[in-house]
Amino acid sequence: MGETELSVAEAELYDRQIRLWGIESQSRLRAANVLLIGIRGLGSEIAKNILLSGINSLTILDDGVVTDKELLQNFLLNRDSIGQKIAEAVLSKAQALNPLVKITTDVKPLSEKPNTYYKDFTIVVATGLTTKQLIDIDSHCREFNVQFICGDVFGMFGYSLADFQDHEYYVDQVRLPNRKRAHDGKASSTNEVTTEKIQAKLNYPSINDALLNTASSSKGKRKRGLQLYYLMKLLIQFRDKNGRNPTASSKKEDLEEMKIIREQYLQEYKIKEENFKEDVLNLVFGEITPICSIVGGIVAQEVIKAVSHKEVPIHNMFLLNPYTFSGKEEMVGA
Protein backbone atom coordinates (compact mmCIF):
# COMPACT_ATOMS: atom_id res chain seq x y z
CA MET A 1 0.00 0.00 0.00
CA GLY A 2 1.09 3.55 -0.55
CA GLU A 3 1.67 6.31 1.96
CA THR A 4 -1.51 7.73 3.42
CA GLU A 5 -0.37 11.24 4.33
CA LEU A 6 -1.27 13.94 1.84
CA SER A 7 1.48 16.26 0.69
CA VAL A 8 0.94 20.00 0.40
CA ALA A 9 0.64 19.68 -3.39
CA GLU A 10 -1.96 16.93 -3.02
CA ALA A 11 -3.95 18.87 -0.46
CA GLU A 12 -4.11 21.81 -2.84
CA LEU A 13 -4.95 19.69 -5.90
CA TYR A 14 -7.65 17.68 -4.11
CA ASP A 15 -9.05 20.58 -2.09
CA ARG A 16 -12.47 20.40 -3.73
CA GLN A 17 -12.71 16.64 -3.22
CA ILE A 18 -11.62 16.92 0.41
CA ARG A 19 -14.42 19.41 0.96
CA LEU A 20 -16.83 16.99 -0.70
CA TRP A 21 -15.99 13.68 0.99
CA GLY A 22 -13.51 14.60 3.74
CA ILE A 23 -9.83 14.21 4.50
CA GLU A 24 -10.27 10.66 5.82
CA SER A 25 -11.73 9.42 2.53
CA GLN A 26 -9.12 11.26 0.48
CA SER A 27 -6.36 9.69 2.57
CA ARG A 28 -7.78 6.23 1.86
CA LEU A 29 -7.80 7.03 -1.84
CA ARG A 30 -4.22 8.27 -1.53
CA ALA A 31 -3.23 4.82 -0.27
CA ALA A 32 -5.09 2.84 -2.94
CA ASN A 33 -3.32 0.77 -5.59
CA VAL A 34 -5.65 -0.01 -8.50
CA LEU A 35 -5.32 -2.62 -11.23
CA LEU A 36 -7.25 -1.83 -14.42
CA ILE A 37 -7.61 -4.72 -16.85
CA GLY A 38 -8.44 -3.42 -20.33
CA ILE A 39 -7.81 0.15 -21.50
CA ARG A 40 -10.15 0.33 -24.50
CA GLY A 41 -13.12 2.69 -24.84
CA LEU A 42 -14.67 1.91 -21.47
CA GLY A 43 -11.33 1.38 -19.77
CA SER A 44 -10.09 4.82 -20.81
CA GLU A 45 -13.13 6.47 -19.20
CA ILE A 46 -12.65 4.49 -16.00
CA ALA A 47 -8.95 5.37 -15.91
CA LYS A 48 -9.67 9.08 -16.33
CA ASN A 49 -12.06 9.25 -13.40
CA ILE A 50 -9.95 7.10 -11.11
CA LEU A 51 -6.81 9.12 -11.82
CA LEU A 52 -8.56 12.39 -11.11
CA SER A 53 -9.80 11.07 -7.77
CA GLY A 54 -6.25 10.96 -6.42
CA ILE A 55 -5.29 7.31 -5.91
CA ASN A 56 -1.74 6.24 -5.10
CA SER A 57 -1.05 4.10 -8.16
CA LEU A 58 -2.70 2.69 -11.27
CA THR A 59 -1.46 -0.42 -13.08
CA ILE A 60 -2.83 -0.78 -16.63
CA LEU A 61 -2.90 -4.37 -17.88
CA ASP A 62 -3.61 -4.86 -21.59
CA ASP A 63 -1.66 -6.88 -24.15
CA GLY A 64 -3.58 -5.50 -27.15
CA VAL A 65 -2.26 -3.42 -30.04
CA VAL A 66 -3.66 -0.06 -31.20
CA THR A 67 -5.79 -0.23 -34.37
CA ASP A 68 -7.75 2.36 -36.36
CA LYS A 69 -10.86 1.21 -34.54
CA GLU A 70 -9.27 1.85 -31.16
CA LEU A 71 -8.42 5.41 -32.17
CA LEU A 72 -12.11 6.19 -32.63
CA GLN A 73 -13.04 4.93 -29.16
CA ASN A 74 -10.16 5.92 -26.92
CA PHE A 75 -9.34 9.56 -26.19
CA LEU A 76 -6.03 8.58 -24.58
CA LEU A 77 -4.55 7.56 -27.96
CA ASN A 78 -2.84 9.55 -30.72
CA ARG A 79 -2.77 8.93 -34.48
CA ASP A 80 0.85 7.83 -34.26
CA SER A 81 -0.11 5.17 -31.70
CA ILE A 82 -1.19 2.64 -34.34
CA GLY A 83 0.78 -0.60 -34.03
CA GLN A 84 1.97 0.13 -30.49
CA LYS A 85 0.95 -1.77 -27.38
CA ILE A 86 -2.20 -0.01 -26.23
CA ALA A 87 -1.25 0.01 -22.53
CA GLU A 88 1.99 1.85 -23.35
CA ALA A 89 0.40 4.14 -25.94
CA VAL A 90 -2.08 5.63 -23.43
CA LEU A 91 0.56 6.30 -20.78
CA SER A 92 1.48 9.85 -21.81
CA LYS A 93 -2.06 11.27 -21.84
CA ALA A 94 -3.08 9.26 -18.80
CA GLN A 95 -0.17 10.62 -16.76
CA ALA A 96 -1.01 14.17 -17.84
CA LEU A 97 -4.43 13.81 -16.19
CA ASN A 98 -2.77 13.56 -12.79
CA PRO A 99 1.04 13.75 -12.50
CA LEU A 100 0.83 12.83 -8.80
CA VAL A 101 -0.41 9.29 -9.48
CA LYS A 102 2.11 6.53 -10.19
CA ILE A 103 1.13 4.78 -13.42
CA THR A 104 2.68 1.55 -14.63
CA THR A 105 1.84 -0.62 -17.62
CA ASP A 106 1.78 -4.37 -18.08
CA VAL A 107 1.60 -5.78 -21.61
CA LYS A 108 1.94 -9.45 -20.76
CA PRO A 109 -1.10 -11.70 -21.33
CA LEU A 110 -3.58 -12.05 -18.49
CA SER A 111 -3.30 -15.84 -18.82
CA GLU A 112 0.30 -15.69 -17.61
CA LYS A 113 -0.56 -14.07 -14.29
CA PRO A 114 -0.20 -16.24 -11.16
CA ASN A 115 -2.80 -16.19 -8.40
CA THR A 116 -0.57 -13.98 -6.27
CA TYR A 117 -0.45 -11.25 -8.94
CA TYR A 118 -3.55 -9.60 -7.47
CA LYS A 119 -2.64 -9.64 -3.78
CA ASP A 120 -0.93 -6.23 -3.57
CA PHE A 121 -3.79 -4.27 -5.11
CA THR A 122 -6.55 -2.54 -3.19
CA ILE A 123 -9.11 -3.12 -5.92
CA VAL A 124 -9.16 -4.77 -9.35
CA VAL A 125 -11.24 -3.31 -12.18
CA ALA A 126 -11.86 -5.53 -15.22
CA THR A 127 -13.34 -4.94 -18.68
CA GLY A 128 -13.69 -7.12 -21.76
CA LEU A 129 -13.21 -10.51 -20.07
CA THR A 130 -14.90 -13.89 -20.41
CA THR A 131 -17.02 -15.57 -17.77
CA LYS A 132 -14.18 -17.87 -16.72
CA GLN A 133 -11.70 -15.01 -16.45
CA LEU A 134 -14.09 -12.94 -14.32
CA ILE A 135 -14.81 -15.83 -11.97
CA ASP A 136 -11.15 -16.84 -11.67
CA ILE A 137 -9.91 -13.32 -10.94
CA ASP A 138 -12.67 -12.71 -8.41
CA SER A 139 -11.78 -15.95 -6.60
CA HIS A 140 -8.13 -14.82 -6.37
CA CYS A 141 -9.24 -11.41 -5.12
CA ARG A 142 -11.37 -13.06 -2.45
CA GLU A 143 -8.39 -15.15 -1.38
CA PHE A 144 -6.33 -12.01 -0.74
CA ASN A 145 -9.20 -9.77 0.44
CA VAL A 146 -8.96 -7.54 -2.63
CA GLN A 147 -12.11 -5.82 -3.90
CA PHE A 148 -13.28 -6.48 -7.45
CA ILE A 149 -15.55 -4.80 -9.99
CA CYS A 150 -16.12 -5.50 -13.67
CA GLY A 151 -18.09 -3.81 -16.44
CA ASP A 152 -18.66 -3.69 -20.17
CA VAL A 153 -20.31 -1.67 -22.91
CA PHE A 154 -22.15 -3.32 -25.81
CA GLY A 155 -23.58 -0.68 -28.13
CA MET A 156 -26.27 1.22 -26.23
CA PHE A 157 -26.16 -1.21 -23.29
CA GLY A 158 -23.73 -1.33 -20.40
CA TYR A 159 -23.38 -2.84 -16.96
CA SER A 160 -21.16 -3.08 -13.90
CA LEU A 161 -20.96 -5.92 -11.39
CA ALA A 162 -19.12 -5.68 -8.07
CA ASP A 163 -17.82 -8.01 -5.42
CA PHE A 164 -16.73 -5.92 -2.44
CA GLN A 165 -17.04 -8.97 -0.16
CA ASP A 166 -17.91 -7.89 3.41
CA HIS A 167 -17.88 -4.17 2.82
CA GLU A 168 -18.15 -1.70 5.67
CA TYR A 169 -19.06 1.89 4.84
CA TYR A 170 -20.35 5.03 6.47
CA VAL A 171 -22.57 7.93 5.54
CA ASP A 172 -22.73 11.38 7.07
CA GLN A 173 -26.18 12.14 8.46
CA VAL A 174 -26.88 15.78 9.17
CA ARG A 175 -29.04 16.42 12.20
CA LEU A 176 -30.85 19.76 12.38
CA PRO A 177 -31.18 21.59 15.71
CA ASN A 178 -34.19 20.89 17.89
CA ARG A 179 -36.45 23.91 17.81
CA LYS A 180 -38.81 24.55 20.70
CA ARG A 181 -41.53 27.15 20.83
CA ALA A 182 -41.42 29.34 23.92
CA HIS A 183 -44.48 30.68 25.79
CA ASP A 184 -44.13 34.01 23.97
CA GLY A 185 -44.50 32.26 20.61
CA LYS A 186 -40.89 32.65 19.57
CA ALA A 187 -38.92 29.62 18.42
CA SER A 188 -35.75 28.83 20.32
CA SER A 189 -32.95 26.48 19.41
CA THR A 190 -30.88 24.67 22.00
CA ASN A 191 -28.67 22.66 19.66
CA GLU A 192 -26.49 23.41 16.67
CA VAL A 193 -26.45 21.54 13.37
CA THR A 194 -24.45 18.33 13.84
CA THR A 195 -23.14 15.62 11.51
CA GLU A 196 -23.27 12.04 12.68
CA LYS A 197 -21.30 9.23 11.06
CA ILE A 198 -23.61 6.26 10.44
CA GLN A 199 -21.81 2.96 9.84
CA ALA A 200 -23.25 -0.05 8.02
CA LYS A 201 -22.18 -3.21 6.22
CA LEU A 202 -23.04 -4.98 2.95
CA ASN A 203 -22.28 -8.60 2.11
CA TYR A 204 -21.56 -9.24 -1.58
CA PRO A 205 -21.97 -12.57 -3.36
CA SER A 206 -19.11 -13.80 -5.51
CA ILE A 207 -19.02 -13.15 -9.24
CA ASN A 208 -19.57 -16.87 -9.73
CA ASP A 209 -22.89 -16.65 -7.87
CA ALA A 210 -23.91 -13.48 -9.67
CA LEU A 211 -23.23 -14.82 -13.16
CA LEU A 212 -24.05 -18.52 -12.83
CA ASN A 213 -26.54 -18.83 -9.97
CA THR A 214 -29.84 -17.80 -11.56
CA ALA A 215 -32.16 -19.76 -9.30
CA SER A 216 -33.70 -16.58 -7.89
CA SER A 217 -34.81 -15.48 -11.36
CA SER A 218 -37.37 -18.30 -11.58
CA LYS A 219 -38.95 -17.12 -8.35
CA GLY A 220 -39.76 -13.68 -9.70
CA LYS A 221 -37.20 -11.80 -7.63
CA ARG A 222 -35.79 -10.03 -10.67
CA LYS A 223 -38.86 -8.83 -12.50
CA ARG A 224 -38.22 -5.29 -13.72
CA GLY A 225 -34.54 -5.90 -14.52
CA LEU A 226 -35.07 -9.34 -16.01
CA GLN A 227 -34.42 -8.42 -19.64
CA LEU A 228 -31.27 -6.42 -18.90
CA TYR A 229 -29.78 -9.07 -16.63
CA TYR A 230 -30.22 -11.83 -19.18
CA LEU A 231 -29.05 -9.53 -21.96
CA MET A 232 -25.81 -9.13 -20.03
CA LYS A 233 -25.47 -12.91 -19.63
CA LEU A 234 -26.19 -13.43 -23.33
CA LEU A 235 -23.52 -10.96 -24.41
CA ILE A 236 -20.84 -12.41 -22.14
CA GLN A 237 -21.76 -15.90 -23.39
CA PHE A 238 -21.36 -14.64 -26.97
CA ARG A 239 -17.89 -13.35 -26.06
CA ASP A 240 -17.03 -16.66 -24.36
CA LYS A 241 -17.75 -18.53 -27.59
CA ASN A 242 -16.39 -16.09 -30.19
CA GLY A 243 -13.58 -14.33 -28.35
CA ARG A 244 -15.07 -10.93 -29.26
CA ASN A 245 -18.14 -8.74 -28.90
CA PRO A 246 -20.88 -8.53 -31.56
CA THR A 247 -19.65 -6.32 -34.43
CA ALA A 248 -21.37 -4.31 -37.13
CA SER A 249 -19.20 -5.93 -39.81
CA SER A 250 -20.79 -9.31 -39.07
CA LYS A 251 -24.12 -8.03 -37.78
CA LYS A 252 -26.32 -10.48 -39.66
CA GLU A 253 -24.47 -13.57 -38.46
CA ASP A 254 -24.05 -12.24 -34.93
CA LEU A 255 -27.74 -11.41 -34.66
CA GLU A 256 -28.70 -14.93 -35.67
CA GLU A 257 -26.38 -16.41 -33.08
CA MET A 258 -27.67 -14.11 -30.33
CA LYS A 259 -31.27 -14.96 -31.24
CA ILE A 260 -30.47 -18.64 -30.73
CA ILE A 261 -29.01 -17.93 -27.28
CA ARG A 262 -32.05 -15.82 -26.42
CA GLU A 263 -34.40 -18.65 -27.37
CA GLN A 264 -32.41 -21.00 -25.18
CA TYR A 265 -32.75 -18.57 -22.26
CA LEU A 266 -36.51 -18.25 -22.78
CA GLN A 267 -36.83 -22.00 -22.47
CA GLU A 268 -34.20 -22.69 -19.82
CA TYR A 269 -35.16 -19.89 -17.43
CA LYS A 270 -38.87 -19.87 -18.28
CA ILE A 271 -38.79 -16.22 -19.32
CA LYS A 272 -41.85 -14.65 -20.88
CA GLU A 273 -41.37 -13.29 -24.40
CA GLU A 274 -42.29 -9.75 -23.34
CA ASN A 275 -39.67 -9.81 -20.58
CA PHE A 276 -36.79 -10.38 -23.02
CA LYS A 277 -37.71 -8.85 -26.37
CA GLU A 278 -35.78 -9.80 -29.47
CA ASP A 279 -35.44 -6.25 -30.79
CA VAL A 280 -33.05 -5.30 -27.97
CA LEU A 281 -30.39 -7.36 -29.77
CA ASN A 282 -30.20 -4.68 -32.47
CA LEU A 283 -28.83 -2.20 -29.92
CA VAL A 284 -25.71 -4.03 -28.73
CA PHE A 285 -23.18 -3.47 -31.54
CA GLY A 286 -19.97 -1.51 -31.06
CA GLU A 287 -18.46 0.36 -28.12
CA ILE A 288 -20.28 3.71 -28.28
CA THR A 289 -18.31 6.55 -26.71
CA PRO A 290 -21.14 8.33 -24.80
CA ILE A 291 -22.22 5.02 -23.29
CA CYS A 292 -18.61 4.33 -22.29
CA SER A 293 -18.60 7.71 -20.57
CA ILE A 294 -21.75 6.89 -18.58
CA VAL A 295 -20.72 3.39 -17.53
CA GLY A 296 -17.12 4.47 -16.94
CA GLY A 297 -18.35 7.17 -14.58
CA ILE A 298 -20.46 4.65 -12.68
CA VAL A 299 -17.63 2.13 -12.34
CA ALA A 300 -15.16 4.79 -11.19
CA GLN A 301 -17.71 6.12 -8.72
CA GLU A 302 -18.07 2.64 -7.23
CA VAL A 303 -14.28 2.28 -7.03
CA ILE A 304 -14.10 5.53 -5.08
CA LYS A 305 -16.88 4.39 -2.73
CA ALA A 306 -15.27 0.99 -2.21
CA VAL A 307 -11.82 2.37 -1.48
CA SER A 308 -12.90 5.33 0.65
CA HIS A 309 -15.65 3.41 2.49
CA LYS A 310 -17.75 6.56 2.10
CA GLU A 311 -21.41 6.40 0.95
CA VAL A 312 -23.55 3.43 -0.01
CA PRO A 313 -22.16 1.46 -2.99
CA ILE A 314 -24.31 -0.31 -5.57
CA HIS A 315 -25.25 -3.74 -4.28
CA ASN A 316 -24.18 -5.33 -6.60
CA MET A 317 -25.14 -4.66 -10.26
CA PHE A 318 -25.77 -1.57 -12.39
CA LEU A 319 -27.63 -1.99 -15.69
CA LEU A 320 -28.00 0.76 -18.30
CA ASN A 321 -31.29 0.56 -20.19
CA PRO A 322 -30.53 0.82 -23.95
CA TYR A 323 -34.02 2.19 -24.67
CA THR A 324 -34.25 4.95 -22.06
CA PHE A 325 -30.56 5.36 -21.05
CA SER A 326 -31.65 5.25 -17.43
CA GLY A 327 -29.71 3.22 -14.93
CA LYS A 328 -31.07 0.51 -12.66
CA GLU A 329 -29.56 -1.25 -9.68
CA GLU A 330 -30.10 -4.97 -9.19
CA MET A 331 -29.08 -7.44 -6.51
CA VAL A 332 -28.14 -10.75 -8.14
CA GLY A 333 -26.61 -13.96 -6.90
CA ALA A 334 -27.98 -13.99 -3.36
Rank of each mutant, 00 (worst) to 15 (best):
Y169N: 06
H183C: 10
S188N: 12
Y169I: 04
K180F: 11
K197Y: 00
V153N: 13
Q165K: 15
N191W: 07
Q165W: 13
T190N: 10
G151N: 06
S188Q: 13
G185R: 11
P177N: 04
N208L: 14
D209H: 12
I198Q: 02
A210C: 15
K186M: 00
G185K: 05
E196S: 01
H167S: 06
Q165Y: 14
D172Y: 03
K186Y: 05
T195S: 05
M156I: 09
N208I: 13
L176D: 05
A187P: 15
N203P: 02
N178S: 14
N208A: 12
V153E: 14
N178I: 06
Q165L: 15
G151S: 02
L161H: 05
L212A: 07
D166R: 00
I207E: 00
L212M: 13
D172P: 11
L161I: 05
V174T: 05
A215V: 15
R175W: 10
D209S: 08
R179P: 08
A162K: 00
E192N: 10
F154C: 04
G185T: 05
A187Q: 12
T195G: 03
N178K: 14
D184P: 00
E168N: 13
E196N: 03
G158T: 04
A187V: 12
R179Q: 08
L176Q: 09
T214S: 13
G151C: 02
N213S: 00
F157M: 11
S206Y: 03
T214L: 11
S160W: 06
G155I: 01
Y204G: 10
K197F: 01
K186T: 08
Y170A: 09
F157W: 08
A210F: 13
P177E: 03
K201V: 03
Y170M: 01
N178R: 15
N203K: 14
N203V: 01
L176R: 08
D184V: 02
E192A: 11
P205V: 07
A215W: 09
A210L: 14
D209T: 05
D172L: 08
E196D: 09
Y170N: 09
G155M: 01
D184E: 03
E192S: 13
V153R: 09
H167M: 11
F157H: 10
D163C: 14
N213E: 00
I198N: 12
S160R: 08
Y204F: 07
F164N: 12
A182V: 13
N213P: 03
K201M: 04
N213Q: 03
L202Q: 03
Q173S: 14
T194P: 04
L202M: 06
E192F: 11
G158A: 00
G158M: 03
R179E: 08
G151L: 02
K180Q: 03
K180C: 05
G155P: 04
Y170I: 03
S206L: 09
Y170F: 09
D152G: 12
N203Y: 00
D152H: 09
S206D: 15
F157L: 11
G185N: 01
A187R: 15
P205D: 01
P205E: 06
A215G: 15
D184R: 02
D166K: 00
N208W: 15
